[in-house]
Simulated scan of single mutants.
Amino acid sequence: MTSPPALDITGLTVRYGDTLAVDGLDLTIPSGQTVALLGANGAGKSSVVNAVLGLLNPAAGSVGILGRTPADAVRAGCVGAMLQHGGLPSEARVGEVLDLVRRSFPTRWPLDDLVVTAGIDGLLERSVDALSGGQRQRVLLALALAGAPPLLLLDEPTSAMDVEGRRAFWTTMRGLADAGHTVVFATHHLDEADAVADRVVVVAAGRVVADGSTAQVKARVTGRTISFTAAPDRRLESLPAVTGVARHGGTVTVATTDADATLRALLADGGLPDLEVRGATLEDAVLSLISTGHTHPIGAVR
């Protein structure tokens, strides 16, 4: 018998008064995937997360979590969440809050292992009010994991973390994914999505406009950039396939739709010191997809 997907969203529509936040969105995520939910502010990402958690009533559509309704899944400890504006009770110790939350689940993550996994060793006796921004995020992660949920939803989870904290956090996420957990996260740090996500889902105007691996999504943007050191008077705009030229000090960056043709012309015209050729980044691809306003998903993965 085939097990149900970790998350199965069909025709999800969310309205706030006259505002359409999510527009008939479909999304299926099998168990064990790490999925980045990307898009501009107001794209509908947080509304999708809130609908999955049962925090709002959609105008239409359905949400299934491992074959359960959101309310049943939350009660059974099937889903853990780390929300963008998650709070902690004041005038309490971290260990007290964690113990209270763990007691509410039928299955509990063993405390010693949970402390190590969430990276909160040494914080259990600390007052919640004395935590730094990064430490609060780690404690919120521990609370999200307290019931050993097979599905983990993260909304901007590293927003208050420094570079070292972000790196440690995603090492933890990769370990959870390797252990079979499904991780779905919304982020504006596209370098994080590029580094850790098995799959990228781009949302614009409440719809999925791209769905695939990071390589598949980046491949939607044609063209490359060529960077090198050049004299200020070197004319480059008329070279074959060049669509734009930017100068930063002595470095020139040329956008081209045909890197081979542009490089041949550049080499014929002189040397190319400090040459670098690169394809589109995930940020380039997401910005392009949002700006072109696709209404049908590209490269859908099931």
Rank of each mutant, 00 (worst) to 15 (best):
P273A: 06
T225V: 11
D274E: 10
A265V: 05
A231P: 05
T281W: 06
A268D: 15
T281A: 11
T253Q: 12
H248T: 15
G293P: 00
V286T: 06
G293K: 05
L287E: 04
A265D: 09
T281S: 13
G293Q: 11
I290Q: 03
V277E: 04
V277Y: 06
D284S: 01
A246N: 01
L266R: 14
A285R: 02
V286C: 05
P232T: 09
G271M: 10
D260H: 12
L236C: 07
A246Q: 08
G249W: 12
T229G: 00
L275V: 12
R278I: 10
G223I: 06
A265C: 07
V252S: 04
A246V: 09
S238H: 12
L267A: 14
G223P: 00
G250W: 15
D269M: 14
G293Y: 06
V254L: 13
L263I: 15
L239W: 10
P273Q: 06
D269I: 13
I290K: 01
T257N: 03
L282S: 07
R247S: 05
P240W: 05
S227K: 07
A280F: 09
V254P: 01
S227G: 11
S288F: 01
L272C: 09
T292A: 03
L272V: 09
T256Y: 09
R224N: 04
T225F: 03
A259I: 12
A285F: 02
L282N: 09
G279P: 00
T243C: 01
D258P: 00
V221N: 00
T295G: 00
G244Q: 05
G279S: 06
V245D: 01
A241Q: 01
D269Q: 14
G223W: 01
A246C: 00
L236H: 11
T257E: 12
A230W: 08
L275Y: 08
A268R: 14
E276D: 13
S288K: 03
E283N: 07
T281D: 08
D269F: 14
A259F: 04
V252F: 10
T295Y: 02
V252N: 06
A280P: 02
H248N: 13
T229R: 14
G270H: 15
A259M: 10
A246T: 11
G249I: 15
L275W: 07
T253N: 08
G250S: 14
D258G: 01
I226A: 07
V245G: 01
G244W: 02
G271V: 13
G250P: 06
A265R: 04
V277I: 14
P240V: 02
H294S: 07
P273V: 14
F228E: 05
T281F: 08
A261F: 07
R234M: 13
L267F: 15
T222I: 00
T251H: 14
D258I: 11
T229D: 09
S288E: 03
R224D: 08
T251K: 13
T262D: 04
S291P: 00
L272A: 12
G270D: 13
G270A: 14
G244L: 03
A241H: 02
R278D: 04
L266M: 10
T225R: 10
H294T: 10
E283H: 03
G293C: 03
E276H: 14
S227R: 12
L236V: 06
H248V: 15
L239E: 03
A261S: 10
